[in-house]
Structure formats: structure tokens, C-alpha cells
Amino acid sequence: MINDFDFLQARSLTEALDILSANSDVLAIAGGTNVMVNMKRAPLETECLLDLSKLDELKTISEENNCIRLGAGVTFSHLLNWKPGGVIEDLMQPMCRAFAGPLIRNLATVGGNVCDASAAADLTPVLVALDASVELQSASDGIRTLNLVDFLQGVRKTARRKDELLTAITFSRPDADDCCFYYKLGKRKADAISIVSLAMIVKLEKDKVASSRISLGAVAPVAIRATTAEKILQGAILNDETIRACTEAAISDSSPIDDFRAGGDYRRQMVGVLVEKGLNAINNA
């Protein structure tokens, strides 16, 4: 018969964690934009929806000792209006503008986007470039912290245990003189699903690259670090030769699929194009 499920609205984080630990089959929703869209298509495979949208403690952004903490319930509109300055703002602002449209930005939360673990997620490449961690809480074990790249395990797969809630995303504020670049390639200007996205942070010391983090979206099961490309940059002078070698490495770091949204060849080619764009932009800045 048609599946029946319950709906609970958590009034505090403690209550939410208790509900998660007491029930084996609970689906947490905040903005609801990933879950409700499926309501129309297929029966919801859960015994209980747990609504987190009233948990104000998850909706704050704070900074302490250069460490940023994004509450899981922060919406993309909130993120868009946040003005942290520097690299964070330069990455977050264009990402938020390219994220869905204003209606969904008013609902969708950063925690939801990370937990949904879509290969084409817009937020995760930026967070991976920021070397972010996720904070997971459960009634039994309290808080544990995982690096985001370890948290994201595959398409729609994360390291979150069923009794855990992703409560925050944390990352260090990059140095004031770090350079960055963000680009999302889609099929239209608004509300488009990513074909390839790129977020990169590069630290230049004199004319050499001291360190870099290059993250790619929609070209692997999860947002990835282009580690081979980063290695090529390490200590190198940012010239045409380095840029060419780095783009080729980034291409080999990616493993895109062929689907109706874009061919694998095109995605691979665009990884190179975007990385080149980014390095040139940083070099010319």
C-alpha cells in the first residue's frame, strides 16, 4: 500500500538528536528542496520526516580566531547576503548567484546541499577549496568532525550515521592576500544544473605558487580536489608552461560521466578551460 510516514518538527537541537537516535528510519529536512521534489515523483521511502526548519541555533554564521562556522540551517540567500570579505566572499558570492534561483535560495540550506551529496552540487567545490570540515552531532557521541572530502563518499552517499545530524560546516579564513577563482558552467544564466564548476584558492609568494587548492564539481561522483594539478603548481612560477601542465593534470584528475546534460569529453575539455581561465585570471590580477 502507499507508504505512510510521520512528521515531526524539532523544537531544539537536543530534541532533533533524540528523535534521530530513537528511530532508525528518519529523513531530516530543512529547506525541503531536495526531498519535496521527489514527493511528486515517487513514494517517500521513510517512516518519518524530521523538520529542522525551526532550529534557529543552526541558522547562524560565526567567526572565531579566523575559523568560520556556517550553521547547517543557513540558507543560500543568507549566504549570498553575508559579506565576510576576501576569498570567502569572492568564492561564495558567485556560487550563490549561480545556485538555483532566488526562490530555492530562500529555502535551501548549506547542510542540506552537503548532505544531499549530488555530484553536481554547487556549494561543495567551494567548501572543498576552503578545506572545510563538517560537524556531526549525535545524542550518543556528541560532536565529531570530519574533513568534507572524507564526508562525501559518493553520489548521494556520505559518512553521516543515521543517528547523526550535520550541524555545521567549518573552515579557516584564508590569508588576506590569497587569490581565488570561481566559475560555474551551465546551459543557461539562471537556475541551471552545473556541467562543470571550479573553485580554486592559490597562495602566491613573490611570483611562485606557495600552495593551492583546486576543486572541481560535476566531473566526478563528488566534488574533488585536483591533487595532481595542485602538485604541479606547488613551488612553480605561474607561466604559460605551468598553466598548460596544470590544466592537463586537472583533466586527468577528473572522471566525468557522459550523460544527456553534457558529454564526458566536453566536461573534461572544460575542466582544462576553466582551470586555465582561473590561473590566467589569478596571474593577471
Binding site: 525541503g32 528542496t33 519535496m36 521534489v37 523538520d51 526548519s53 540567500s77 526562490l103 530562500n106 529555502l107
Partner: peptide, 28 residues
């Protein structure tokens, strides 16, 4: 019904949202 067209837009606490993507019980 999938949040892609905006014809169901309402204001929720003043913010424009797709009402197809909100569980009714969330607006308590």
C-alpha cells in the same frame, strides 16, 4: 511540482518560496 517553474510562489515569513517544496506542516 519540482521547484523549477515558480508558478506556486508564495511568501513564507516574507520570503518568496516555491510552495511545492515546502511540507505544509513546516509552516506551523
Amino acid at each position: 511540482g519540482t521547484g523549477d517553474c515558480g508558478s506556486c510562489t508564495v511568501l513564507l515569513d516574507g520570503n518568496a518560496v516555491n510552495s511545492c517544496m515546502v511540507a505544509a506542516l513546516q509552516v506551523e
